[in-house]
């Protein structure tokens, strides 16, 4: 079957496809959460259940007995993705949850940074620290932690 699309319409269609592809790729870039830890942290991979326990303050020590230092990126898109996927909470529920721990004496709020660069720098220089960034962020001075199901 001979199917011809007028030139103007084909340009518009192409532009739409490019836009959608870019949108998907862009949103994909934000959606991918990568866990990063200080090089002294004695693990290479953790289960999704363990990562949840760590970030809701129920596991406070690594297997070597050293304390876990939590680092988050409050107020960012990657934080929203992280809380939804790994803590079963929305970002506001995550914030309220931690405040509840603070005001009952059960926890100290994680360190929070505005940018991924600041977070990486802190994790690289702090023993026992673990945080997350979006994929594509430079992670040279830290180790990445694989999360299994």
């Amino acid at each position: 079957m001979n199917f011809k699309v007028p030139k103007k319409q084909s340009q518009l269609l192409l532009a739409c496809i490019v836009f959608i592809v870019m949108l998907v790729l862009t949103s994909g870039a934000y959606a991918e959460v990568v866990f990063v830890a200080n090089k002294t942290v004695p693990i290479e991979q953790v289960s999704a259940r363990e990562i949840r326990d760590i970030f809701i303050g129920e596991q406070v020590k690594w297997k070597n007995g050293k304390r876990i230092v939590l680092v988050v990126l409050m107020g960012t898109d990657i934080h929203k993705e992280f809380t939804k996927k790994y803590t079963r909470k929305t970002s506001s529920q995550f914030f309220t949850y931690w405040r509840s721990l603070i005001f009952t004496g059960k926890g100290v709020f994680p360190m929070s940074f505005d940018t991924e660069e600041e977070l990486i720098s802190f994790v690289a220089n702090t023993e026992g620290a673990i945080g997350y960034v979006s994929s594509g962020t430079k992670t040279d001075n830290v180790k990445t932690i694989k999360v299994t199901d």
Binding site: V60, G65, R67, I102, F103, G105, V108
Partner: peptide
Amino acid sequence: MGINYSREILSGLRGGFQ
């Protein structure tokens, strides 16, 4: 009104008051 202070004393040991 409430005000609290808490800190990690050692790995796994925390103390505080409100």
